[in-house]
Each structure stands twice: as structure tokens, then as C-alpha cells.
């Protein structure tokens, strides 16, 4: 168990990571298409994510960034190379209920209340529901008062908040976020980024975020990894220099804008030429 439950209120170093939490060792993934041809989704990717580090995978759609997340989540197996999470096979981690996940599709169960949806991971892990933890998270994501509502009664942004609360409820060792705000409008999305940053700074969980938004990656992550499209490769890695907790104001700073430009250029090299 980690001690991530005790909120770290004070300012800590930007990069506390020393120990490796997620190790992608020369992984590749190919799919066989219906016409018999092979599609190389990930060519060769090596990436180490430290304990308590927040890494954002940035890339155009179809570059295999979601596939990398699915490999870490043990939803798929690599064709080549090896994935090690917390020193073990990824499957061991999900079987031990130590993963948290949120997808672009909120994937809330329509027949459960928000409170029951957030409590679901406890039940899937066969543990008794920690009511206090559920309440705390619902409050933390700003859904207090909506505990007994059903997902369909909430807006898209509120559903994603519930989905984030659910991903954190078990104090996971590793948090996987697959475009969690991809379906939201720009204003809601920015607001959600600010809140996720605040919550994450309290919990400091090893996190892999998959996104195609440059601003989102920069504002949230300690390190941004840029991938190229088909076949997926890592083409650029930058350390994010901003200290935590981060204020929304940094998004207006010149440094932030320079980094946005740099990453955008890396994403669209042909347009720059």
C-alpha cells in the first residue's frame, strides 16, 4: 500500500521520482487486419515512468498512444518487448485492484447512483465500501449534493468528475487516464484540468495521461512525451518546469506559450516546413 492517502499539502520538488513505477521496455504492437495485412500500431517504444510521476502521452489520433495505455492496463498484450508495472506483470496489478482508470467514455453504470458508481471499485475488489472515502472524493471532484443522482441526470462534465472520483477511490498505485476530457467543450475541459491538477497534487499517484491537447498535457504533467503517427514512435520528450501546485495563471505565461509552440511544432512538423 502507498501512503498516497495522506495529502501532501506542502510544496514538494517537481520531480520526486527516483524509483521506476512503469517500465515499457522496447515494446511493439501489431494488429492483423481483416485483409491479412499487418498494421504496426507501435513500432518500438521505451519509456520509464517514476513513482509519483505524472507523464502525458501526446500525439495525433491513431498514433498508438491509447494502445500504450491499454498495454499498461493489461487490456492488451504487447507483440514485442515487455511491460513491467511496479516490478510485476500489468495483469497482477489489475488483479490486485491497484489500478485506477478513466476513459473518454465515462463508463458510469446507468443503473447506479453517482455514489454507488464511485463505490463500485470497492465492491469489485471484494472489500467493504469505505463510505467516508466515497464521500470525500465526491466532495473533492465537486459533486457534493449529487450523490443520489443518476448519470443520465448529469452533464457531460459532471459525469467525467464522477468517473475521475471512481478512478481514485481505491488509492490506486497507478492511475491511467485515456482522454478523460476529450468529449468536453473547451471551457469545461480547462476547468476540469485545473481541478484534476489540484486533486492530483494532493494524492501524487503515478499517472499516465493520454491526450491530444498540448495545453492539457503541459498544465498537468511532469513530463510530456510526444509520439508520431503510424507506426507509433516517441519523437520528443520534454520536462515541464512549472512547480506545483500550479495556478491557472501559468497558462498565460510566456514560458508556457513557448512550450506549447515547441510541442505543436513537434506534433505537426510538415506544417512548419
Amino acid at each position: 500500500m502507498t501512503d498516497a492517502s495522506s495529502p501532501v499539502a506542502h510544496l514538494s520538488p517537481v520531480r520526486p521520482a527516483t524509483e521506476t513505477a512503469i517500465d515499457l521496455d522496447h515494446i511493439g504492437k501489431s494488429f492483423r487486419m481483416e485483409n491479412g495485412r499487418e498494421l504496426v500500431a507501435i513500432d518500438e517504444v521505451s519509456l520509464k515512468i517514476g513513482k509519483g510521476e505524472f507523464v502525458a502521452l501526446l500525439g495525433p489520433s491513431g498514433c498508438g498512444k491509447s494502445t500504450i495505455l491499454r498495454l499498461v492496463a493489461a487490456l492488451e498484450a504487447p507483440s514485442r518487448g515487455r511491460v513491467v508495472v511496479e516490478g510485476r506483470e500489468p495483469e497482477d496489478l489489475s488483479r490486485a485492484h491497484r489500478l485506477g482508470v478513466a476513459f473518454q467514455d465515462h463508463a458510469l453504470l446507468p443503473w447506479l447512483t453517482i455514489s454507488a458508481n464511485v463505490a463500485l471499485p470497492f465492491q469489485l475488489a471484494g472489500r467493504s465500501v469505505d463510505r467516508k472515502r466515497v464521500e470525500e472524493l465526491i466532495r473533492l471532484v465537486g459533486l457534493a449534493g449529487f450523490e443520489q443522482a443518476r448519470p443520465r441526470q448529469l452533464s457531460g462534465g459532471m459525469r467525467q468528475r464522477a468517473s475521475i472520483a471512481r478512478s481514485l477511490v481505491l488509492h490506486p498505485d497507478v492511475l491511467l487516464l485515456d482522454e478523460p476530457f476529450g468529449a468536453l467543450d473547451a471551457v469545461t475541459r480547462r476547468q476540469m484540468n485545473v481541478e484534476l491538477q489540484r486533486i492530483w497534487t494532493d494524492e501524487r499517484i503515478t499517472t499516465l495521461l493520454v491526450t491530444h491537447s498540448v495545453e492539457e498535457a503541459l498544465f498537468l504533467a511532469d513530463r510530456v512525451v510526444v509520439m508520431s503517427g503510424r507506426p507509433g514512435r516517441v519523437i520528443k520528450t520534454i520536462e515541464v518546469p512549472f512547480e506545483r501546485p500550479r495556478q491557472p495563471a501559468i497558462m498565460r505565461s510566456a514560458e508556457f506559450h513557448d512550450l506549447v509552440d515547441e510541442l505543436t511544432l513537434a506534433l505537426e512538423p510538415e506544417e512548419a516546413a
Binding site: A74, R95, L99
Partner: peptide, 26 residues
């Protein structure tokens, strides 16, 4: 059940019986 729900249950380490009772049957 949708693919996203099935993925979710797998990542949270739900056993086949738990998945049947809490996802597939509802």
C-alpha cells in the same frame, strides 16, 4: 454491455462472477 464497461471491469480486477452479477446481468 459496452466495450468501455468491460474494459473498466477488467482494469478494476473484477472476477468473472462479479462481472456477471454487477455488469452483464444488469
Amino acid at each position: 454491455s459496452t466495450a468501455a464497461h468491460r474494459d473498466l471491469f477488467q482494469v478494476f480486477g473484477a472476477s468473472p462472477v462479479k462481472r456477471l452479477m454487477r455488469l452483464d446481468l444488469p
